[in-house]
Amino acid sequence: MLKIENLHASIEDKEILKGLGIEVKPGEVHAIMGPNGAGKSTLSSVIAGREEYEVTEGSIEFEGEDINELEADERAHKGIFMSFQYPVEIPGISVTNFIKTAINSNRKAQGLEDMPANEMLKKIKEKAALLDIDMKFLSRSLNEGFSGGEKKRNEIFQMAMLEPKLAILDETDSGLDIDALKIVANGVNKLKSADNAVIVITHYQRLLDYIVPDFVHVLFDGKIVKSGTKELALELEAKGYDWIKQEVTA
């Protein structure tokens, strides 16, 4: 589904990713862990198509197609979704109106008519229930004055509505208490299928107790320096990142 090879990416001439490779197949859950400043958020931004980052070398393929030249919205139309670490507040646009616009933009890109209002409402209700979201919440302005937990839940709600093939969860656990974490993880698990894939980007192992990864990668200094199964996450949790740093620099 997603194949990244020898990826080098810079922002303002500063190289952040330095030859990163990863392959994600349908039905898989990958966790990318790493210390602060390793390039985790850069990786998610580059996959999602943030313009400020320049890919200087290597390739990103999604379902066999090089997506490097595509705009963020075109990548979304292909089925890539990113849950933001810091979702943007947009006063004046309700969650419902926002998600309607997003859904219909995606449908338009696929040559489909707008989703009928009753179908939309049904879907909104269904997905809100899945994430234990109150319908009143959906009429509030997007992320404005939301708590950390509400913002993250809203991200996963959007993911549930948009039904992406590949979801990148960037530090979704940050700012969540354990109850909110369980709800969010539970939502992600319910949305999992054999056809879609998830990349969980996180600093801590905590979220991986609830969203169990098939593979764990350690990102350090712009490269994947170690890959393994979920046991690797536990090892990182117990030993910290210093031993990885030593291994790499040794």
Binding site: A72, A76, V88, A102
Partner: peptide, 28 residues
């Protein structure tokens, strides 16, 4: 620009994203 990127990752094209943010700006 951060808000523009956010909207685009949801599949909303540049022109519509601009429109939506402009609308949001004026709407109160």
């Amino acid at each position: 620009t951060e808000a523009m990127f956010y909207l685009k990752t949801r599949g909303i094209p540049e022109k519509e994203a601009k429109g939506l943010l402009t609308y949001a700006f004026a709407n109160n």
